[in-house]
């Protein structure tokens, strides 16, 4: 990793924390491409002796992309929040590609796909869930955000609380609202 990469990510992270919203979009694009590469390499490298989990993958990504001396742990929570959004995208893209493959369309597989097929993702109709989250976002963006952080990012209550700026007690209550709503939404669908 060259120095300027980590500088760039760190700067974007700091800019985002300081309220520059466009920084988030840039950060997402940047980290996404990296996450695919690292994720692919990670899964290829590690044989049966390592388990993949979202937190470890993202952590690895964080270590490589961020100058740790310059950011505080709150920034790290924010980075993980970015990564959670990205996990959603990575998994969704994967699920969609698999759907198209089933339908016989020609879509290039990416290195991550193979690896992903081999590990146990719990995907309760991932694409439907994604749609539900879009609808939820329109009604109450905090609720959908919360689901992304917890479900896709594997973040703990305290971390979610830091990112959303609400107490962890509130995180728990809001989570139950979101979960109940999604459950109902998806049951109706199915």
């Amino acid at each position: 990793m060259t120095t300027h990469v980590s500088t760039e990510v760190t700067d974007l992270l700091l800019a985002w924390r300081n309220g520059r919203q466009e920084a988030l979009a840039e950060l997402m694009e940047f980290v996404y491409s990296r996450l695919l590469r690292i994720g692919g390499a990670y899964l290829k490298d590690e044989r049966a002796d390592h388990t993949l989990d979202a937190a470890a993958l993202v952590h690895e990504c964080y270590l490589r992309l961020v100058q740790q001396e310059r950011v505080r742990w709150q920034d790290r929570a924010h980075f993980f929040a970015v990564a959670a959004r990205l996990m959603r995208r990575v998994l969704l893209d994967h699920a969609r590609r698999r759907e198209s493959l089933k339908r016989g369309s020609e879509i290039a597989k990416i290195p991550l796909d193979e690896a992903m097929d081999s590990f146990p993702i719990r995907q309760p109709q991932l694409i439907a869930l994604d749609q539900a989250l879009h609808d939820l976002e329109a009604k109450d963006s905090q609720l959908s955000e919360l689901v992304v952080l917890r479900y896709f990012g594997g973040m703990r209550k305290e971390e979610v609380s830091e990112v959303l700026g609400i107490s962890s007690a509130t995180v728990s209550r809001r989570w139950r609202t979101a979960r109940a709503w999604l459950f109902e939404y998806l049951s109706e669908d199915g």
């Binding site: 979202a54 998994l91 590990f119 993702i121 309760p124 689901v147 896709f152 139950r176 109940a180 459950f183």
Partner: peptide, 19 residues
């Protein structure tokens, strides 16, 4: 829905199980 979601462990674990 809350009770049913709880009973069925709906979204109880992150999408990639955190080991």
């Amino acid at each position: 829905a809350d009770a049913a979601a709880e009973a069925r462990n709906f979204l109880a674990e992150p999408v990639i199980p955190s080991r």
